[in-house]
Design a protein around this nucleic acid. Structure first.
Lengths: 225, 225
DNA sequence: TCAAATATAATAGTAATACTATCATTAACG
DNA sequence: CGTTAATGATAGTATTACTATTATATTTGA
């Protein structure tokens, strides 16, 4: 079982729980840094092992392969985000206000309420933006979905869908719109940096996340009008 | 330069124009089929060569590597889609009607108006849905963007953004919304098949693309209200 | 406290991948 | 008819993605 204040990751994603040992935590910590630095396609267990001054074989004792490792990290992120979404809205009764807070948490503009020493959540957030959709766009998606690899992502999505229905109970597309909001948030952050012609949010402006929040609120408000 | 009724693909994406020779066309045709069958991660030039009874070295004479090959195929698709969007709306003056037609073309519900013998557009469409976002989510994105690898995609997106502004000239987020529409359309088709809890559109229903069209029209109508 | 179990390190090895190079053969072209 | 261009055949290299084996250090618990 996973550790540390409740971030539990699907057991099928690892061979030996990396949160349970020092080496495992170093793998997580430096894996996040390395994937962010060189990108997932260039990332190898050999390089990671060398970075942490361990061996390839040792890393393989924790994770079957780098794909599972990435899914593990993303799962960790979605569990963490799901916790933060839950935690930050627990005392807010008004549906629209709840939605605003969820959007803030989603784009990471809210302050962190759960810190784990071996996970840099900001770097992990970047990884989720860049590599997030790769894991379910594979030939193994159906098998992996059966194994519950995407449960945490679906939980986040359903939480937002529920927030939509709380605002407007007869809204016809809560799930699609929830996915749309999540993907729009991430795409905007990525596009503003790399493909600016695909978005209206500028990278340079210092209140970028304000602008993004306004846009997402605009979407929600218009769609649920 | 590219061939066949105007599908021209960025020259930097290939070493030798595959549309100009029989072997090149076989590479395109069977490459599409093979990627669809086994997925891009399992796809290799060796396997492709064996499928077309040629050699790895021969395939490498056309494309530098499989990543460029995928970008080539996606580019081909975006050029083709851009042409169809343009072609199918050229005589429609009413902005809302134009948008509807564009949405229909986007989800492939409209009949084809340009057929190329060595490209199965339906299979290619599936590849775009599954592998489409992988190409720009890489460490090379900025260099590749400079080289114009995503120009065709941006052209499609801008065409839709323009369609949005034609309906409502002061709409604040035309580009983001255009991206959102494209990605929503593709995600819905993928999710309905593999991660149905992330969408409200069911796979089984026989009028699936009708439902998808309705949803996209709902989005456009609400957002531009 | 000693023996046993466990975790990691060190090393080696294999099959597949992602190419590059060379040379022979065929087709096409002027 | 001779030259050029395209493809095929074959081989080779570096890297990747693992698996296996043995040695050593650490922890545990009887």
């Amino acid at each position: 079982m996973g550790h540390f204040l409740g971030i539990t990751v699907n057991e099928k994603l690892y061979i030996k729980d990396p949160q349970s040992s020092e080496l495992g935590q170093k793998i997580i910590q430096n894996g996040i840094i390395l994937i962010d630095e060189i990108g997932f396609e260039n990332f190898t267990f050999r390089r990671l092992a060398s970075k942490i001054e361990s061996t390839e074989a040792s890393v393989y004792r924790y994770f079957e392969n780098k794909q599972k490792f990435l899914i593990y990290l993303l799962n960790w992120y979605w569990e963490w985000l799901d916790f933060r979404l839950s935690n930050s809205t627990i005392n807010i009764k008004e549906p629209k206000k709840r939605m605003t807070v969820m959007l803030m948490v989603l784009i990471d503009a809210a302050k962190k309420d759960l810190e784990v020493p071996y996970v840099d959540e900001d770097i992990l957030h970047r990884i989720v933006i860049v590599e997030g959709t790769k894991v379910y766009h594979s030939k193994e998606v159906d098998q992996q979905n059966n194994d519950g690899f995407f449960a945490a992502y679906k939980s986040v999505s359903e939480r937002i869908a529920k927030g939509i229905l709380d605002i407007k109970a007869d809204y016809p597309y809560p799930r699609s719109t929830a996915s749309l909001i999540i993907e729009s948030a991430f795409n905007t952050l990525y596009f503003s940096e790399h493909l600016p012609r695909l978005t209206d949010i500028k990278r340079d402006q210092k209140d970028q996340s304000d602008e993004l929040l306004h846009m997402l609120e605009f979407y929600v408000q218009k769609l649920l009008a």
